[in-house]
Design a protein around this nucleic acid. Sequence first.
RNA 1: GCGUCGAUGGUCUAGAGGUAUGACUUGGGCCUUCCAAGCCCACUGCCCGGGUUCAAAUCCCGGUCGACGCACCA
Length: 489
Amino acid sequence: MASASSKERSRDGIAELARRRGFLWQAFEIYGGASGFYDYGPLGALLKRRVEEAWRKFYLREGFYEIETTNVAPREIFEASGHLESFTDRAVVCKHCKSFFRVSEGVDVRGKCPECGGELEAAGEINLMFQTRIGLSKEERDEEAQEKTEGYLRPETAQGIFINFQRLLRFNRDKLPFGVIQIGKAYRNEISPRKSLIRLREFTMAEAEVFVDPGEKSNHPRFDEVKDRMLWFVPSEGEGGEKSLEEAVRSGIISNEYLGYHIVKVEEFLERIGIPRDKLRFRQHRPEEMAHYARDCWDAEFLSDRYGWMEIVGVADRGDYDLSSHASHSNTDIGVHVQLPAREGETVKTKAKITPHVIEPSYGIDRIIYALLESSFYEEQVGKEKRKVLRLKNEIAPIIAAVFPLLNRDELKSKAKEVFQMLRDTSIFVEYDDSGSIGRRYRRQDEIGTPYCITIDYETLADDTVTVRERDTMKQVRVPIGKLEEVLV
RNA sequence: GCGUCGAUGGUCUAGAGGUAUGACUUGGGCCUUCCAAGCCCACUGCCCGGGUUCAAAUCCCGGUCGACGCACCA
């Protein structure tokens, strides 16, 4: 056990750091905890917010508008979305080979295991949605009345966008294509949540829904901007490997330009916030692993030292599944009139009514946070000490800079506090520290990914310059206080 | 959900029937003109519940949480 657990521990350095330095805490800890729930501590919350902010900016720049919809929704929404049907079957498990089966026409508790012929036992309900009640319900009421009060926590944020489609279309002045984003919590009552942030019961998703005329799917107006981008594709069939997007689309690996465009955007974003490109690939779902709504799906996978390849973003072609289904369940017409291009010799343009298709990049923010922490964590030998450093990009680092007096003396401390306060008054988030030796303070900041440390020394008192020490190189430059703001951005 | 193993200050750890070891961290002080230095002082702990026993961190039972394997992950 000793050797296994010490190996475990060294591989787990980032988990220990995240806990100790206030990034990530198991939820409900003082009550013994509950599996699948994590709280973000002060630094974790800052990091997460900065990642979300970077994501928001990225998609707003692409022309998307953000909306915010409810976490709780009535039963009908999930009847229409297909989640109720896909989630509430009873399940059985084979006592012998442990295979799991959904109860269906062919399989029930009294039957035999289709895999090995072993005895089956009930394994409860597969219901990944958390159920709740909306309003009061009297127990003696009939079943129909019960159903009326039945509500669920959303298992994805997307439905809130689909059910507002008409409003959104109108907001976009009845023109396709357009895109909508949402960042928010989603909930899935996982059977066995594990692996820190990888499988949570409550998690943050950032989803973008692109509505496009199906006839235009292979004609993205900005395809040229991204077509030469090289990506690592792993299709469900045939050879994978590094290809340009254009090649992938032309050879049919990627079925349309819209899907391809957004796959590239996913990689651009991930790279921008600091996920290393060589740890990223795009893997296509096999038909049997596809969600009920998807006609095609590509996962952006991150190569984790700890967990191997793991999904951090899914890019799905949902076709017209959601809009059509909500249209029929809600008895609403959500078709869109589009103009067809005028043909040779025709004087009148024809109009057609179509149901848009949806391309959906869906980001698991918590998994991305994990990937960022793991891939930016380094332990390196500096002299006799091990230096732990989080090489986070400036754009997402929880704290941009820390201000120190070189020595714990009043004249340096008061000057340092002055500089600290000056920076806090800008949008640059800084920290102040005067405890222990200067070296200790540098290392403390390295550990939490602070890119810069500003030190006030006696020279500062003479000429108003400070040293700025860079996290990754540990090199220092002298900078006038007045120029700090531009140096730190 | 099943199986195996585990849980001791903030972190990591020693202890295998007599209420706990050490290191680091943290806080205070001294020292210190740039990378976890040194010295002094201080704080903090046996996952929860039940049982056995004069006595339980230690043994037994149950639970919770975690790691790993199987299954699950629309």
